[in-house]
Amino acid sequence: MEQFFNTYFDFSLMGEYFGDVLEGFWWTIRLSIFGGALALIWGLILAVLRQAPGKALAPVRWIVIAYIDCLRGIPMLLTLLLIYGGLGTLQSEGTIPKWLGLPEFLGWPPYFWYGVMALTLVYGAYMAEVYRAGIESVPRGQMEAARSLGMSHNQAMRFVIVPQAVRRVIPPLLNDYIALMKDTSLVSVISMPEVVRIGSDIYSTTFNPSALTLGAILFLVVTLPLARLVDWQIKRQDEKFQRGMA
């Protein structure tokens, strides 16, 4: 038992490297904030395009469905490596502009932004499915009422359907957000010094995984309250439904 504690919970080592691990976790947080915010927006755009009405817009629907299915069908690690492996080269050959091929917004390194891109592209696809479920759960009569008042399809979506849909899908979106947050660790493979990368670097010099344990604890500090928040939201919505609202 003592051996176990000395291996995983070496407090002196944790203390020594606390600053480094925290710095890594700060990248993790930034990845989740940028990737998460963009995925939320991109997912909503995809979901709305997927509901585009009429025969003329059928190709738009097909493309969106194909995109969503493909991105959900490929491991995110692979998507990330494809972005990392291609954009830099394309940029140096002048095929794509520098802001896309070698992005350095806010002075942060390209591999950070590659990570944000991968998270956005992949989690946008997941979140699009969540939004879609929300949009489809809004009763048909809402769209009919809006259209009968003379609103266009787009106006009805924007002012009537989407605001109701988003409210209904906050809990599943938060679940996806927790998953996204954990998947930021994949960006470690393209040398992003986020918390997992830092932890394993420390391990390879000290042969003790306590820095990784510290990383796990930092994750839990954020994800556990989020999980409680999801439960609380679900409970609140159930109560609303029981009162015949929402």
Binding site: G141, E144, S148, A246
Partner: peptide, 12 residues
């Protein structure tokens, strides 16, 4: 103008 059996007011 149209009025529906199920009202269809916007709940939000």
């Amino acid at each position: 103008g149209m009025v529906f059996q199920s009202f269809n007011l916007f709940p939000n």
